[in-house]
Structure formats: structure tokens, C-alpha cells
Design a binder for these strands. Structure first.
Length: 405
RNA sequence: CGGGGCAUAGUGAAACGGCUAUCACGAGUCCUUUGGGAGGAUUUGUUCUGAGUUCGAAUCUCAGUGCCCCGACCA
């Protein structure tokens, strides 16, 4: 992508209506645009990050048998009245009093699978979607960490026994662990014992350590697990020493038991209620959490796995057309090799502006072409977040990148 | 939902109740410039909305709306 073709431009100033770090950096870099409190557009760069995260999530969920669907956002009142959740605060109501906007999908998935899960032979099943959720948040805050409309992966599992649910629940823990590892925040993300289970007393959250977080958790580094403060004051679930940390919830898994199958009459051929679990990952929140974890004074430092592009190619041409044409050529070579590259071909910007924008946008590999590098038939390569500069011969560039990416 | 704050060009800010509402950046056009935010020329406005006070309101008052922050809330 040529930067002159990109819809967005960077800004030097923080927007005055964003105080949280993730929102400031994402807005300045042209990843998101705020339409209202907790309501964001994902711009071309931002959507690429979302798409990368979604791909990781899809791969890991499909490894544990998940089948993807896409349920609607408009929900009939009838479904929600069966569980007594029609009049909750979270639900946005619309003018049509028989419809509401979906803030979660238990009431929809349960009525859906009832048409297809008719006997124990049809079990287990694991159905998920990635979809926009709407929640009437009394206070949207912290940029894309807590929105009124946000992107969520929600997986629902259906079992013939609690034992089968328990086994799958453990598999989801592994899948989630893989997701956070692959998104680069594995080391900062803890499986956390939390309250709020509708069936078993507890649920589990995946909490990423950051000061931008809203939760307090007690972390045990030895066990690599944590306990949410809401569960019981001051202690962890082990006897080890624990640290009190602020964290943001990037995933949550629940054993729902038979609550929803009871409300909808979801039974097997013998009349036994089907046992359910549900598992959520806030995709857009995860993106915000990644920004909160990986940044410096200059901008974002995207992990390779979720970066909008692999390489940021920067041409510092000094107005010389031969330098420009050589970097154009390198750009097309990279494209032919299917290397994802953002090409700063702007010729009305100073070197300083280009380099600062590069730091702000945070693509993992910076590649500079200038009179200085071309003198040696080379380009300069630097990783975002590192000061080490490598000079690579243009002839060897593709081999270098194939090895490095 | 309780408390506090803010609202002025595309963005960020300034302006005692009083002159044509300034400044910087961005963006457009022309020229020069290019290794850490460059220079000149020129263009860029219904001061959030509504009512009120006043000879006169960006400025004061009331109401509304929006946004930010703290708290409550967050299967």
C-alpha cells in the first residue's frame, strides 16, 4: 500500500477527547476514528490489525472443533423473555418494541441449535461467531477497551454431560492461551479465577497486566495464575506470595450448565437437558490491550503477528527522481514476493516527518532507502523498538526478509 | 446512574462583556526543500444547540446535547 493512497493521515496532536493511551495512539496513527463515546470506526490500518487478530482466533477455535456462524444483531424480544433478560440495562432497545440489539447471544444460539441438536448423537457441538456486540454501557471509557459497540468472538459449546463440558472447558483454556501467546501478550496474560459463573460458582478470565486495566487481580508468578479481587479480598487461590496488579479482561470463559437449555427446552432424546458453556474474546479490546502493552514515547510497537503490515518502506529521496524510482522498484519487488508492505512514497514530507510517522504507526520492520543507502546498493533495516540498524544489499534483501519475517 | 471538568477553522490552542475572533499545525495551489516534524506566497469559521441578560455576548445566566475524568455498574 502506497501511503499516498491510504485514506488516513497521521496527526501530531492527540485528539482532545481521548485521554487513554490506546485511543490516542490509535487515533493519531489512523487506526481508529471515534464517532461517539465507545463507538469507533476501524480505519484501513486498524481493520488490518483486527483481521490479523481474528485470523489467529479463528485458527485456534477451529483447532478445538469450533464451527463458525454469523448470528444477527437484531434480537426478538421473545427469545430474551424466556430467560428474563429482556429488561437488563445492557440491552439497547429500538423503536420496534419487539426487537433489541444483541449484547450477547445465548438466547439466539440456544434457539438456533435446538433445530439441529435433537439427540445425544448430535453432541458435542462447538459453535462460534465473530460479530459486533452492542452494550448500553453507562460509561464507555478507555478508548477501544470498553465500548458501546465492539467486536467479539463468542463460542458456545453443547454437551451431553457436565464431565464432557469440563473436558472441553480445559481445551478452551489451552486455545485461549495460544491466542494470547500468538498475539504477543502471552507473558502478560494470566488465567484468572473470577466470580460471576451462572452455573459453577466461578468463571475464568484471561487478564492482561496493564495500568489501563479496570480490574485488580492477585498474580502468582510461580503458578502463572491469578485471582480476581472480586472473588475474595486479599488472597490468591494458592498459598504462594501474590502481587496485586491492574489488568484488563481480554477473555472470559463460563460454564453455563443448563440455564439456557432449560429456558429453551433444549433436550436430548431422553429428555435430558443439554449442558452448555460459553467463551468470549473481545477482539477490539484485545487490540487496545496490545497497544497499551506495546508502545513507547513515539508510538505503537506492534507484535509481528498482528501488525497491519510487515514492512514499512520509507523513501527519503531528497527530491531526486532516481532515488524515488529505485525505491518504487524495491516496493514492487516486495509486493511480488507477497510481503505486506506500507510504502511511504510521499514526496512533500521531510525525513523527520516520515521517520516519526513510522514510529507512530509501529510496523515491526522499518526499511529506509536514501542516497546514503543506495550508494552501497543497500537499504537500511531497523526493527521497531530496537536501535540496531542493519545495512542489507538490495540483491540480498528478499533472502534477508524471508529469513527474518 | 452520582460527582467533577470541558465544548472556538480539518486538528490543537488563544482571545478583560467592546475594533474585521487570533496563533500554530494540517490540507489545496506555486517555487525552493528531504536522515528525526523545513521556508515564502495564497486559500481554509453559523465560537455545540436553544432561550435569556445587555447598547453590545465566544465571554454572563438558564436549559439541552455531546465528550473526558473519578465512582457505581460491567452474564
Amino acid at each position: 500500500m502506497k501511503q499516498t493512497d491510504l485514506l488516513t493521515k497521521t496527526t501530531k496532536e492527540n485528539p482532545k477527547d481521548e485521554k487513554s493511551l490506546n485511543a490516542q495512539l490509535l487515533a493519531r496513527g489512523g487506526f481508529v476514528d471515534k464517532l461517539g463515546a465507545g463507538i469507533y470506526t476501524f480505519l484501513p490500518l486498524g481493520l488490518r490489525v483486527i483481521t490479523k487478530i481474528e485470523k489467529i482466533v479463528r485458527e485456534e477455535i477451529e483447532k478445538i472443533g469450533g464451527q463458525e456462524v454469523l448470528m444477527p444483531s437484531l434480537h426478538p424480544k421473545e427469545n430474551w423473555e424466556k430467560t428474563g433478560r429482556w429488561d437488563v440495562e445492557e440491552m439497547y432497545k429500538i423503536k420496534d418494541e419487539n426487537l433489541g440489539l444483541g449484547w450477547t447471544h445465548e438466547e439466539i444460539i440456544t434457539s438456533l441449535v435446538k433445530k439441529h441438536i435433537l439427540s445425544s448423537k448430535d453432541l458435542p457441538k462447538y459453535i462460534y461467531q465473530i460479530q459486533n456486540k452492542f452494550r448500553n454501557e453507562p460509561r464507555a471509557k478507555s478508548g477501544i477497551l470498553r465500548g458501546k459497540e465492539f467486536i467479539m468472538k463468542d463460542l458456545y459449546s453443547f454437551h451431553s454431560s457436565e464431565k464432557d463440558l469440563d473436558e472441553y472447558y480445559e481445551k478452551v483454556k489451552v486455545a485461549y492461551r495460544n491466542i494470547y501467546n500468538r498475539c504477543g501478550i502471552g507473558e502478560k496474560t494470566y488465567l484468572t479465577l473470577a466470580g460471576g459463573g451462572t452455573f459453577s460458582k466461578y468463571s475464568h478470565e484471561f487478564q492482561t497486566i496493564t495500568d489501563a486495566g479496570e480490574d485488580i487481580i492477585y498474580v502468582c508468578d510461580k503458578c502463572k495464575e491469578a485471582t480476581n479481587k472480586e472473588v475474595y479480598e486479599g488472597k490468591g487461590n494458592c498459598d504462594c506470595e501474590v502481587k496485586e496488579m491492574k489488568a484488563i479482561e481480554v477473555g472470559n470463559i463460563f460454564k453455563l450448565g443448563t440455564k439456557y437449555s432449560e429456558a429453551f427446552g433444549l433436550k436430548d432424546e431422553n429428555g435430558n437437558l443439554i449442558v452448555m458453556g460459553c467463551y468470549g474474546v473481545g477482539i477490539s479490546r484485545l487490540m487496545g490491550a496490545i497497544v497499551e502493552v506495546f508502545n513507547d514515547g513515539k508510538g505503537i510497537i506492534w507484535p509481528k503477528s498482528v501488525a497491519p503490515y510487515a514492512v514499512h518502506l520509507i523513501c527519503i529521496d531528497g527530491g531526486k527522481t532516481e532515488i524515488k524510482s529505485q525505491s518504487d522498484e524495491i516496493y514492487s519487488i516486495l509486493q511480488k514476493q507477497n510481503i505486506e508492505v506500507l510504502y511511504d512514497n510521499r514526496d512533500d514530507k521531510t525525513a523527520g516527518e516520515k521517520l516519526n510517522d513510522c514510529d507512530l504507526i509501529g510496523i515491526p520492520l522499518r526499511m529506509v532507502i536514501s542516497a546514503k543507502t543506495l550508494k552501497d546498493d543497500s537499504v537500511e533495516v531497523k526493527e521497531r523498538g530496537s536501535d540496531e540498524v542493519k545495512i542489507v544489499k538490495i540483491k540480498e534483501l528478499i533472502d534477508f526478509l524471508k529469513h527474518d519475517l
